[in-house]
């Protein structure tokens, strides 16, 4: 079992970390364009758009690094934060799709010619949530091992 589980968890960690470390680059490089992408979701009040644009890419960076290289407790925290972010992104993209807003998700590129969001983004996010939760559960068990059951 662990012969399959260990490489799977390593691959999951690398995949989740690589995607989030890759995703934060364009957002950090051009926060103004990322703020525009955030505003296009029409979810946040205008007052919070820039705050999210300034901080969110760095949450992606620190969480991605934690998933890749941190000890178990921080790794679990990074994976949990990533799963939470993915959940929020999925809801936001779904709302845009439902409202017929033909916008890019702003996930990996802030360029105007980035691909417009579609159902594929939701499938991809679902898979990433699954992977990050697998990383979280493994890291959580390692960080907080259960005491062996008391023998009568």
């Amino acid at each position: 079992m662990s012969r399959v589980r260990t490489p799977f968890l390593w691959l999951a960690r690398i995949a989740v970390a690589a995607i989030f470390l890759g995703a934060c680059i364009a957002k950090i490089r051009d926060p103004e364009l990322f703020a525009l992408a955030v505003n296009r979701y029409r979810i946040l009040p205008g007052e919070f758009v820039n705050l999210v644009a300034i901080v969110l890419p760095w949450i992606e960076l620190t969480s991605g690094l934690a998933v890749l290289a941190a000890p178990a407790r921080l790794r679990a925290a990074g994976a949990l934060i990533i799963a939470g972010m993915l959940g929020v992104f999925t809801i936001a993209i779904s709302l845009n799709l439902l409202r017929g807003i033909e916008a890019s998700c702003g996930c990996f590129s802030t360029r105007a010619d980035a691909a417009v969001s579609d159902g594929w983004n939701l499938v991809r996010n679902g898979a990433l949530i699954w992977l990050s939760l697998a990383v979280f559960l493994d890291a959580f068990r390692r960080a907080f091992p259960r005491p062996p059951p008391a023998t009568p």
Binding site: L61, T62, L74, G78
Partner: peptide, 19 residues
């Protein structure tokens, strides 16, 4: 609680770096 603390620490580092 320890898990929440680790999450808060990561978020605080991110907020500090972003700022």
């Amino acid at each position: 609680l320890r898990m929440a603390g680790a999450c808060a620490a990561l978020l605080a580092v991110a907020a500090g770096l972003g700022t």
